[in-house]
Design a protein around this nucleic acid. Structure first.
Lengths: 339, 339
DNA sequence: TCCTCCTACGTCAACGTTGACGTAACCAGC
DNA sequence: GCTGGTTACGTCAACGTTGACGTAGGAGGA
């Protein structure tokens, strides 16, 4: 609109009749400026509406910090991702750090591009929910020395911190509870197999069956369900089998919703037990309430942020793999006994 | 970790035995470099793992673009906000622009600080969901010439683009539908009155009553409900009144959920009609399905992004107030007749 | 008194990049 | 052969800021 130039230190310096260096000192609160000069500079800055240029500053500073971190999640519109983003953001704010956010859509190519964009902007660190498959781009970035923390994924390469939840243990717990309630035919419905979390939850399912002395029925296992539609089809097929599974363990929230939809369509929601991994809003309002494994998303995000910041501050201790416990929330659907 | 310095143009130039200016030309794809030189520079850049420093570049460039926009919403973990963020992000990606995101928590002070942080980083533009109350900070920012678009809020000051949904018209439509189904005592439950959207939706409610020839019963109006707890209390009180409202119009999604919770607790969910403003996941899975006014969130975000980008490109046409139509999604709860 | 130390400034160059401008080499045309 | 234009480079300074270092003046001690 108007052709106004942002005022610079030089403008402030001229108005306050001091050198730019003195303005720099005042703005940064460094010693070496007398009280009157400080006041004069402050007044000049205020009257001009001066605001420091962080990009210029970080270019020159010795530490080169941009006070910005990058966050690369799969899909920011997913409640899990956005809750995580919010947690990271809150923690970042405490350090005066802002967050550059992007969605990788589980596309390696997109992840690579976003990574590049973040690097180009010289972020101080990154919190990444890695896409499935090979993670060369991530590893390269890490090897360049960029502080990086993986969330909801373990590193497939060395030297990197990560934060995950108790995928395997909590899945086992869920399956064991179903077994305790008398179920023998417990089906598994999982997300894309390339996702580490999917694999872990499946392993937990197997462990649960083993602990309960149940035999794995391969025909009750459905994986690679991407999105609610696939989940619905898989659920429908499972319910057509003979003998029909009397309980479902759905290993991802969209899968849970898809399965529920089918159970309700067939009026089986009060007869077939269901435990889902990952909580979702209104799970308690359905009939029956949906029993889920709830992840502590704020804790995940906070921990991830704390780890990056520690690395940014120069912490060089060995890489950490933090595990945040999840818990089983019993609401009814997981406490249905076989008929 | 390692004390590696990021390679610069100078390093590339030295290795390719050309001047930095030539490297600049090659990297930016500008003419004035012979084919062999281009190849030599590219090879050198690749072998050093060179990546341009966007902060230095934008400092020097004449347009001073940072290829970054700021997004300031109320709460990024709210599904509405995160869906909006995602839409803005998608549109931004098309322009090679990244998004700096922050939550203002409806706190004027926090908004001011975040605004400052964004300005300090010299973002090219901002998409802001303004906090309630006076918007001096926003206005000042706007007057400095920062391209800015308000989402889900109209500007309270001149010269600024905004994108909103049909709050008033859709609310009226919802109320009219309730009236058509025979309701005379239609309660209103709204969010904080400082929010423009709340006011608009309330006005729509009044218009609906007026069009239907219904008299406003002040005792059926509850506003300033912040969060689901307040909504629950208000709903409980309303249902205690005599005569009891036979229909509820809840003007915000958390309020809708709170109201539903109480209706269910009193087993009135099949007897009292309910229409909520703003859709939410699983609204269709409840019994009865929840009739809502659905906003076209992706369209809102896309439009907002397009407006900022137009301004960034130098569009100086008069400010636009874009309105994205919302639609009534009938799922059952809004189609209950008075008993 | 002189020397030392400290405080409150200022000067200069550099961070990594690009705009403005210079120049050498080459080609076309007369 | 000379002029004029084009191409492919290079040189230099500047973007806004800060680190390194310099200096004038005053305080303090022997």
């Amino acid at each position: 609109m108007d052709e106004r130039r942002e005022p610079t230190m030089r403008d402030v310096a001229a108005l306050a009749r001091v050198s730019t260096k003195t303005v720099s000192r005042v703005i940064n609160g460094l010693p070496g400026a007398g009280p009157e000069v400080v006041e004069r500079v402050r007044a000049a800055a205020r009257s001009l509406g001066y605001r420091p240029n962080l990009t210029a500053s970080s270019l020159r500073r010795s530490d080169k910090r941009s006070a910005t971190i990058g966050v690369l999640f799969e899909d920011l519109s997913n409640p899990f991702d956005s809750a995580l983003l919010r947690a990271v953001e809150d923690r970042a704010r405490q350090n005066g750090v802002l967050v550059l956010a992007g969605s990788s859509e589980d596309e390696p190519l997109l992840q690579r591009e976003l990574l590049e964009s973040l690097a180009t902007r010289r972020v101080d660190g990154m919190v990444v929910m890695a896409v499935g498959g090979h993670q060369d781009a991530l590893q390269q970035e890490r090897e360049r020395g960029t502080p990086m923390v993986l969330v909801d994924r373990p590193p497939t390469f060395g030297g990197t911190d990560s934060v995950t939840t108790t995928n395997r243990d909590s899945s086992r717990e869920a399956v064991l509870q179903l077994a305790d309630f008398g179920h023998r035919d417990i089906a598994f419905l999982g997300d894309r197999r390339t996702l580490w979390t999917s694999q872990e939850r499946y392993t937990g399912y197997l462990e649960g069956l083993a602990h309960a002395g149940l035999k794995l029925r391969e025909d009750l296992v459905r994986t690679d369900l991407k999105g609610p539609d696939a989940a619905e089809r898989a659920t429908a097929e499972l319910l057509d089998r003979d003998p029909r599974p009397t309980a479902l363990f759905t290993a991802q929230n969209l899968v849970t919703v898809g399965a529920m939809r089918v159970l309700r369509a067939r009026d089986l929601h009060h007869r077939v037990a269901l435990i889902g991994f990952d909580d979702f809003p209104l799970a308690d309002m359905l009939q029956p309430g949906v029993t889920v494994v709830r992840q502590d998303v704020p804790a995940l995000g906070r921990k991830a942020a704390e780890l990056v910041f520690a690395r940014i501050e120069g912490d060089t201790s060995p890489p950490v793999h933090a595990v945040v416990p999840a818990s089983l929330v019993r609401r009814g659907s997981g406490e249905i006994r076989p008929h």
